[in-house]
Amino acid sequence: MTEYKLVVVGAGGVGKSALTIQLIQNHFVDEYDPTIEDSYRKQVVIDGETCLLDILDTAGQEEYSAMRDQYMRTGEGFLCVFAINNTKSFEDIHHYREQIKRVKDSEDVPMVLVGNKCDLPSRTVDTKQAQDLARSYGIPFIETSAKTRQGVDDAFYTLVREIRKHKEKMSKDGKKKKKKSKTKCVIM
């Protein structure tokens, strides 16, 4: 069974824990209790493949930012979460993405942009803004509501699919490099 290491990042209060708990335990946590770091595991079937999701729910508070490099190193894919009623959390996505790329030393890291709290009427981040940002990053965008469960499975499952595509691409690139290195030079 394939294991996928997913990391949920975003500013404090955007609903990272609520999304994760909704996926794992099928219930909505409405009281806000700032996370330092929590880890969850769940076995699911995605596109006919049974897999184990190892999900790291991270601290959004700035005082825990020193811990970010460590979990970013171990993560295979990242859910970059903002709240649709919090423009600052949307603007912060850029910083999370840049930090992930720096730590992973790669421009090509599996990510999904997630606009959470889409059940709320007080939207300050337009869907088109988020779609445009995701398009500019070359990553999928999904709106979710941890409260109603809308888009929750889709967000995590899409990230797994992005990781699969990335692994497939990397193995193809690896095979191309191996083929090239088999060419021999004969000096007579």
Score class of each variant (00 low, 15 high):
V44N: 09
K117E: 11
K177T: 15
E62W: 10
V29F: 03
R97M: 15
A134E: 15
D126A: 09
F82S: 09
H27N: 08
S65W: 03
P121D: 14
S106T: 14
V112K: 04
K175W: 07
N26F: 15
R123T: 12
S106F: 11
V14S: 11
V29T: 09
N86G: 12
Y137G: 08
K42F: 04
I163S: 01
D30M: 11
D119H: 12
Q61A: 13
A59W: 05
G77D: 03
M72S: 15
V29S: 07
R135H: 10
K16F: 04
S106P: 06
T74W: 15
Q22L: 02
V29M: 08
Y64S: 15
V7W: 12
M72D: 02
G13Q: 12
C51E: 05
V45K: 04
S106A: 11
R97Y: 15
M72A: 15
R97G: 08
F156G: 02
I46L: 11
G12C: 14
K101D: 14
P140T: 05
T20M: 06
T158Y: 12
V152Y: 06
S181D: 15
Q131G: 12
G15W: 07
L56P: 00
G115R: 04
D119W: 02
T158A: 12
V9A: 10
H27R: 13
Y64C: 15
E3D: 10
Q150V: 09
Q70N: 01
F78Y: 06
T124E: 12
D154E: 11
G174R: 08
V114R: 03
R135Q: 11
E62Q: 06
A130K: 09
L133T: 06
I163T: 14
A134V: 13
M188T: 12
K104Y: 14
I163M: 12
D105A: 08
V112C: 06
V29D: 05
F82G: 10
S39A: 12
K179R: 10
G10Q: 02
L52W: 04
S136G: 11
A66V: 15
D54T: 01
H166G: 12
K88Q: 07
I139S: 06
Q25I: 03
T35W: 00
I36C: 00
I36A: 00
S106D: 13
R164V: 06
G151S: 09
G77K: 04
V7I: 03
R149A: 06
K5E: 13
Q61G: 15
D153N: 06
A83E: 15
M72Q: 02
L56K: 00
V44L: 02
E3M: 08
K5R: 14
K180E: 13
R41N: 04
K180R: 11
Q43Y: 04
E37R: 00
E107L: 11
I142N: 06
T50A: 14
D33W: 13
A83I: 02
K184T: 09
T74N: 10
E76P: 01
G15Y: 07
Y157H: 13
A83S: 13
E63A: 02
C80W: 10
M67D: 00
Y64F: 15
C51K: 02
S136I: 06
Q131D: 11
S145C: 04
Q150S: 15
K42C: 11
D153K: 03
K172S: 14
E49G: 09
P110A: 04
I24K: 01
D153M: 05
V45Q: 14
V160A: 07
Y4W: 02
C51I: 02
K16W: 02
Y64A: 15
C80A: 06
G13L: 13
T127N: 10
R123F: 07
P121C: 11
I84W: 13
F28M: 01
V7P: 02
R73A: 11
D132E: 08
V14M: 11
D30R: 06
I84D: 15
R164Y: 07
T20E: 11
I187M: 15
F28R: 00
R41P: 10
K42I: 09
Q131F: 13
V8L: 08
A130V: 09
Y71S: 09
N86F: 02
K176Y: 12
K165M: 07
H27G: 06
K167C: 12
L133P: 06
I36M: 05
Y71L: 15
P34L: 03
D54I: 00
E76G: 02
T58F: 15
F28I: 01
I84F: 13
T148S: 02
T127P: 09
A83N: 14
T58G: 03
V125Q: 10
Q70D: 01
V186D: 13
R164S: 06
E76Y: 14
L133C: 08
V29L: 10
D69C: 02
S65C: 07
I55N: 05
V112F: 05
D153W: 02
K182C: 04
G13R: 06
R41I: 04
S17F: 01
D47K: 05
K169N: 08
I139C: 14
T158R: 12
G60A: 02
S89G: 12
L23R: 02
R102A: 04
D92H: 10
Y96P: 03
S65H: 10
L113K: 03
N86P: 01
E62R: 03
L133R: 06
V14C: 12
R123W: 07
G60C: 07
M67K: 09
H95G: 11
I187Q: 15
Y40D: 01
D38M: 03
N116A: 14
K128H: 09
L53H: 01
G12I: 02
L133W: 07
K16N: 14
Y32D: 00
L113Y: 09
K169S: 13
Q129C: 14
H94Q: 13
L6V: 10
T127M: 08
K180M: 08
A155C: 12
V9L: 15
T58L: 01
I21C: 07
V7C: 05
K165T: 14
R135G: 13
S181F: 09
K184P: 08
Y4F: 10
M111P: 03
L113A: 07
I21Y: 10
I21V: 10
K177W: 07
Y40M: 02
E63L: 02
G10V: 04
D173F: 15
K128Y: 09
G13T: 09
A18M: 02
A18E: 00
R135S: 10
S106N: 10
I142D: 02
K182N: 05
A130C: 12
D38C: 01
R123L: 09
K178R: 11
T2W: 04
M67C: 03
F156V: 11
R41L: 04
T50E: 01
F82M: 10
V109L: 07
F82I: 06
E162A: 09
A83R: 06
L53Q: 08
L23T: 15
G48I: 06
E98C: 09
S145T: 13
L79R: 04
Q99L: 12
E31T: 07
D54M: 01
G77I: 04
L159S: 02
D126M: 09
A18H: 01
K169A: 06
V14G: 09
H166E: 06
I139L: 13
N85I: 12
V45S: 04
S17K: 00
P121T: 13
Q129G: 14
E107H: 09
M72E: 02
Q22M: 05
K88Y: 07
I55L: 04
N26K: 02
E37H: 02
Y4R: 06
D54K: 00
F78E: 13
E3T: 04
L159F: 03
F28C: 01
K101V: 03
E62L: 15
K175I: 11
F82H: 10
V44F: 03
T87I: 15
L53P: 03
G77F: 14
I93R: 02
E107A: 10
I142H: 13
K104N: 14
T20V: 06
N116L: 15
R68V: 14
A130H: 07
A130D: 08
D154T: 08
L113T: 12
R135L: 11
K172N: 10
T35P: 00
T87S: 10
T2Y: 11
K117M: 15
V109P: 06
C185R: 15
V9R: 01
K165Y: 10
Q25S: 08
V14W: 02
E107F: 11
H27L: 09
L113C: 12
V186F: 07
A18W: 00
H95L: 07
V112E: 01
L159T: 07
D132K: 10
H95Y: 10
L133V: 11
M188W: 06
L159V: 12
D119P: 01
V186N: 15
L56M: 06
G15C: 15
A130N: 07
E3P: 08
